[in-house]
Design a protein around this nucleic acid. Structure first.
Lengths: 225, 225
DNA sequence: GAATTTTTTCAGCTTTTTTTCAGAAACAAG
DNA sequence: CTTGTTTCTGAAAAAAAGCTGAAAAAATTC
């Protein structure tokens, strides 16, 4: 997830960069409007954070340049100018959010998440070992390989991932996936665990679904023997 | 462009409605959280404007419900609660913008425009892969070749393009194209997806309309194998 | 009002998913 | 080692979801 910060207050820019990098973003910084434009127009970023008042080119004009080039990247305006007119100008120039300095770190992060979520570039997933279940597409992903899970496979896998290393009885899985009052039997769970084990193996996952007699299932990371 | 306002202060709600209708939007209003939820989950709106403090269900929970149902509709939170924690909760609940009362009409409009712009609702062309849908002529264009889409084909294609790589359930397509109260059935969507696939192929588009069982459809760029 | 286009309906087909079942394998206890 | 139970598994049947072509109905155009 690549973020470009365009901000002339070096101190603020750098602390922002540090903070966002800690959160796992890939951050680059430009210290004036013109070089900011140069970077932004590369079109490689998932989010732009722009200051308004900057040397050489202000944030509004930079936003307009970006939009004129038809780049759809979300833009977060970050500025000390709190006036109503400023906010309106910012939004009309093509910004997607207008945040006023001084701002709280958690609020900034919430904004960033909201903007990335909207772009669909934020994935929500459950992970265990080297494997992730993408909750929006129902794909089981391990490094570069992935398989699609059917609806029931997905439900069972999600239960297991939510429980993690904790144990889950077949009864509970049955109730959560097939419903409390269905007439499904425990063999259904066994069959689906079988399906899942095959698919996990097919993408080279190190997740093992471990059975414990009379108790149920739980996940483990396979030991390299 | 359909907007749903969920707001219990009748006076405010109605003046908002009037104002937005003057601007050419198609506006509906719900006066409490529960009926708001009912409307919102129909999936037919292009924007939700939610108050936070409401009888029966608050705006945060409503936003969470909408997101839980995987609806990507933009949400604008409109509220008197100006606190930092409130803003953060709102954004994390799934809102896209947090505007504090009292607000200026022009600012609200700028926000609405920003949100709709992001959805691609105000451009005159939607593109994906090597193919574009011209919204003014209803032509599907791929390089030099193009076909005209019928009205329904156009509506379905627009939904799909707006969602892009994100998934769209048949239910939502049905609601957006045929209306939530029509007696259209899911096979209609299947038939139209069939029509669109034929037309896409006929102009050499690299867009594939991918079906995912139980989930719906989404677009992909066909890989050159 | 005839011709054309668009939309709806529907039945049958293919594919995928889910269920069923019976036998094999694994395990724990005596 | 045997026994009884539990879990695993592969194959087959059943059900569900999606696709498609053709025809009927409705709307639009000329």
């Amino acid at each position: 997830m690549r973020i470009l910060i365009v901000e002339d207050e070096k101190l603020l820019a750098d602390s922002l960069q540090t903070m966002l990098e800690k959160k796992g973003f890939d951050v680059e910084v430009a210290y004036d409007g013109e070089s900011g434009e140069e970077y932004a127009l590369l079109g490689v970023y998932d989010l732009l954070i722009l200051d308004v008042m900057m040397p050489k080119m202000n944030g509004y004009d930079l936003a307009r340049q970006v939009r004129a080039k038809r780049l759809g990247v979300p833009i977060l305006m970050l500025t000390a100018r709190a006036g109503l007119e400023d906010r309106i100008e910012g939004l009309n120039a093509g910004a997607d959010y207008y945040l006023t300095k001084p701002f709280d770190t958690r609020e900034l992060l919430a904004c960033i998440n909201a903007l990335l979520r909207r772009q669909g570039s934020q994935v929500d997933e459950l992970t265990f070992g080297n494997t992730a279940l993408d909750l929006s597409t129902g794909m089981l992903v391990c490094q570069s390989r992935s398989v699609r899970l059917s609806a029931k496979e997905f439900d069972v896998m999600r239960c297991l991932l939510q429980a993690g290393q904790r144990n889950l009885s077949k009864e509970v899985i049955l109730a959560r996936v097939w419903g409390y009052d269905s007439n499904a039997v425990e063999n259904h769970v066994e069959v689906y665990v079988g399906f899942l084990r095959k698919k996990l193996a097919s993408i080279g996952s190190n997740i093992r679904i471990e059975a414990i007699r009379k108790l149920g299932y739980h996940l483990e990371v396979a030991q390299p023997c």
